[in-house]
């Protein structure tokens, strides 16, 4: 459903509040079908917001965005998809590890998507976020950036 909506109805995301409503429906679906995944997302939020300089806010297209000094380090959609922007080089390295996918919309960019499905995925999600966080701390520019995301 997520893939269908993003592919065919993605053009509607500019309507104020609609993406938030869609994300709320994802949250509702998760609460009804896999409530433990919501707890895992909470666990990630708790850990990441404990890092120095990190704040969490609502992502403009729904979900939870983590910022380091107002710069995004990644965001979590309410269906457990974690999106992070890396350089192309890091994306290739991560791809070799075999756990990430191209971003669900921006395929030919540095954006990656990692699907959190079980408790075993939490350490890897945190590792990806930490990598992005450290990159921001070190002030490295994020190549492959798409400003409309």
């Amino acid at each position: 459903m997520f893939a269908f909506t993003v592919k065919w109805l993605g053009f509607l995301k500019g309507i104020p509040g609609l993406a938030l409503f869609f994300d709320a429906l994802l949250k509702l679906q998760l609460f009804l079908l896999r409530p433990q995944l919501l707890s895992m997302l909470d666990e990630i939020e708790l850990e990441v917001t404990s890092w120095e300089g990190i704040s969490a806010r609502t992502h403009k297209y729904g979900g939870l965005q983590f910022d380091y000094l107002d710069k995004e380090i990644g965001h979590l959609h309410s269906n457990g998809l974690l999106d992070i922007l890396f350089s192309f080089k890091i994306k290739e390295q991560l791809r070799e590890e075999g756990r990430i996918q191209d971003h669900h919309v921006f395929v030919n960019t540095g954006w990656i998507t990692f699907g959190i499905r079980s408790k075993q995925d939490i350490p890897y999600a945190l590792c990806l976020l930490k990598r992005s966080y450290l990159q921001k701390i070190n002030g490295r520019p994020a190549q492959g950036y798409r400003s409309d995301h």
Binding site: L20, D23, A24, L25, L28, R57, T58
Partner: peptide, 17 residues
């Protein structure tokens, strides 16, 4: 139900922010 529940949850997200 999906409409009401969806917008109540959206309201809590907006409220939280």
């Amino acid at each position: 139900s999906p409409l009401i529940l969806g917008f109540v949850i959206t309201g809590t997200v907006i409220g939280k922010a």
